[in-house]
């Protein structure tokens, strides 16, 4: 189970989401992705997408203006 960082800092919605999905496509089931985003919209949108599509949403933490959104690939 790999842990991957997707650096979407500086981009805006839906940039970080799309970057995450691109990495997700080449990941294995069980891999954990942590998306870094400076865009609050993405911090709301990414968990919404993860739940809708059926992956596992793990957590969101804000630190120094950067949101760290963690999810796990389920399928």
């Amino acid at each position: 189970m790999a842990k991957k960082i997707v650096d979407g800092r500086g981009s805006f919605c839906p940039g970080p989401l799309m970057e995450m999905i691109a990495v997700l496509k080449s990941s294995q089931i069980g891999d954990e992705l942590e998306v870094l985003s400076t865009d609050k919209g993405s911090a709301n949108e990414i968990p919404e997408w993860v739940n809708k599509v059926g992956h596992e949403y793990v957590s969101t933490v804000e630190k120094d203006g950067v949101w760290h959104i963690t999810m796990r690939k389920k399928k």
Binding site: G10, F12, G15, M18, I21
Partner: peptide, 18 residues
């Protein structure tokens, strides 16, 4: 003036990722 994703990139991602 900001780093929003380019519309052409998004359309291409719509095809490639979705």
């Amino acid at each position: 003036s900001k780093k929003v994703p380019e519309f052409k990139t998004l359309f291409e991602q719509a095809v490639e990722l979705g």
